[in-house]
């Protein structure tokens, strides 16, 4: 049964990208049925009433689709719940009297803009480098006109579940974006329309990822374990295959 609990929030506050940040502590009394982001909204209302600066954090859809709510809660990207984004996290996950540490993503690829908000445009740049189909595929065909094996369709769909939130790079001790890139390469390489440009795409997206300063994957699987969409590291093996095949053909 949900009840009111008292928690202590340790929140990272940073005025700007170059400013020095520090933790600030806020005591909260909150009902366990409240979502984590609603709890931050309530805290912000309180801060505004007290004439203080509200905490800046990213959020949008609040239903686990957009991947905007990038918070590192108690040592986990998106908090302690598995297979869920921060907006799907509820206060019933926490105990009465608990201290909750909230930090922004820590990765050179995601510089802090302010407080808990980071700049994740690096992922957009990787997508712009090749995460699309540019061949002319004509008008919309009948759904059954191009037979695709169920296995491939399922794998492509699983990879396409990636919302590009950045939790993979945030969780990785190497700051690697390989899970994200592999999911985007896989979802297209597995389907006939995307297969045509698979080699060029793998090379371009990996080159952009390296250029933007993301780290090297060492297969710790932390990305997979913390991914709110449960993207598998088997996609990384597929990306490696696609990339190596493309390079050996050059």
């Amino acid at each position: 049964m949900d009840k009111d609990i008292k928690v202590t929030l340790k929140v990272w506050r940073q005025k700007g990208p170059k400013a020095k940040g520090q933790f600030e502590t806020y005591p909260m009394e909150i009902h366990q049925s409240v979502s984590f982001l609603e709890m931050l909204d309530i805290l912000n209302e309180r801060l505004v009433k007290e004439g203080k600066e509200p905490i800046v954090f990213d959020h949008d859809c609040r239903e686990g689709i957009c991947g905007m709510c990038s918070l590192y809660v108690n040592g986990h990207p998106h908090g302690p719940a598995t297979g869920a984004t921060t907006c799907q996290l509820y206060m019933r996950r926490f105990q009465d009297g608990e201290t909750i540490t909230i930090e922004p993503w820590r990765s050179a690829g995601f510089p802090v803009i302010r407080d808990l908000m980071v700049d994740r445009s690096a992922y957009d740049k990787i997508m712009q480098a090749g995460g699309f189909v540019s061949v002319n595929t004509g008008g919309v065909p009948d759904a059954n006109a191009i037979p695709i094996p169920k296995k491939d369709a399922d794998l492509a769909m699983d990879a396409a579940a990636c919302i590009g939130c950045g939790a993979c790079a945030a969780a990785c001790k190497n700051g690697s974006a390989m899970l994200f890139v592999s999911a985007k390469v896989s979802q297209l390489a597995l389907l006939p329309q995307g297969r045509v440009e698979a080699a060029r795409r793998a090379k371009a997206m990996v080159a952009k990822m390296d250029e933007l300063g993301f780290g090297n994957c060492t297969n710790t699987r932390a990305c997979e374990m913390e991914c709110p969409k449960n993207i598998s590291v088997s996609n990384i093996a597929r990306l490696n295959r696609e990339f190596l095949k493309a390079k050996l053909k050059d």
Binding site: S107, A171, S176, N216, T218
Partner: peptide, 17 residues
Amino acid sequence: QNRKARGNDRYAATARP
């Protein structure tokens, strides 16, 4: 390279998944 990619600021709270 990986240390550089991790950035200068480290997490205050860490947990091995």
